[in-house]
């Protein structure tokens, strides 16, 4: 439990991934925006420091690619993702391509063989993670909310785990909450809740249960006012984090003035006669 007493403490509550201090606990994806400019405005307003980019969508070897050139690399860490990879081989190949083109060895590992719900393949993700970690990649794997898989990936040396809240792009919120709570409880690496967060309140909820960060894309990009929605998520993530670190009061379903089951014990602790 972290308790802050001053604003300075809160400012220093930094997310650390693979030894790198990250100032914002909101990661933002770049798909689905109506234009590179709208995307750039939303990134700015979100306060994010890590921006994910689908390798399938950009021409990673071309500096003039319209999306890539709209992402200021002095401000944001570019985190390429392997979205669309069907198996470990494809994900590894795409990761190497991204590293060769950008010089960045961080990769958001996505192995999503099902083209409809884009759910992550646990077997191939673990396999790819093992290969990439050995090859000096900083690996941030997208996974189902599976606590055992999260531990296995951690053992394999991934920098984070990124379990989904609900199917990607679905905006359904924390459907996997109980499994996320287990993952968070057991993790030794940052837990970034990824996919399915449709509203700022969902992001706040993820932070309140102790997630280290969240990743949001569709909810921002598909909003009528993406940059305003990005700002709303920024606030929600901060609020949720603050609430978590404050040690929230316990919740109860009913008032607890009387003790119907233990009243007979009385106030004093002595043997009954």
């Amino acid at each position: 439990m972290i308790i802050f007493s001053t604003a300075r403490d809160e400012m220093e509550d930094k997310l650390v991934i693979a030894g790198r201090k990250i100032g914002s606990r909101l990661l933002v994806g770049t798909g689905k925006f109506a234009s590179p400019q709208i995307m750039a405005d939303a990134l700015e307003k979100s306060g994010t420091e890590i921006v994910t980019v689908a390798l399938r969508r950009v021409d990673i070897e071309n500096e003039n690619d319209d999306m890539l050139s709209a992402i200021d690399r002095n401000k944001y860490l570019l985190l390429a993702n392997t979205s669309g990879a069907r198996d470990a081989d494809e994900a590894v190949r795409l990761s190497k391509l991204a590293r060769a083109a950008t010089g960045i060895n961080w990769v958001k590992l996505e192995v999503t063989p099902d083209p409809y719900y884009l759910l992550p393949d646990p077997v191939e993700t673990l396999k790819a993670a093992e290969i990439l970690v050995k090859d000096d990649f900083v690996v941030l794997p997208y996974i189902n909310a599976d606590p055992i898989l999260a531990k296995k990936l951690e053992d394999a040396g991934t920098a984070t785990v990124m379990p989904l809240a609900s199917p990607i792009g679905s905006n359904q919120g924390l459907k996997t909450r109980s499994a996320l709570e287990i993952i968070i409880e057991q993790a030794n690496v940052p837990v970034v809740v990824d996919a399915g967060l449709g509203l700022p309140s969902h992001a706040a909820e993820a932070m309140e249960i102790g997630a280290d960060a969240v990743l949001v894309n569709t909810a921002i990009a598909a909003a009528d006012e993406p940059s305003q929605m990005a700002a709303a998520f920024k606030l929600a993530v901060r609020a949720g984090r603050m609430a978590y670190t404050c040690g929230p009061a316990a919740r109860s379903k009913r008032a607890s003035a009387s003790s119907p089951l233990t009243g007979f014990l009385g106030d004093k602790n002595q043997a009954s006669k």
Binding site: A34, R57, E90
Partner: peptide, 17 residues
Amino acid sequence: IKKQGFKPVWKDWDRAF
């Protein structure tokens, strides 16, 4: 496409796949 508030996407795959 742009005028209608959409982004024309020329690339949504990669030969590396």
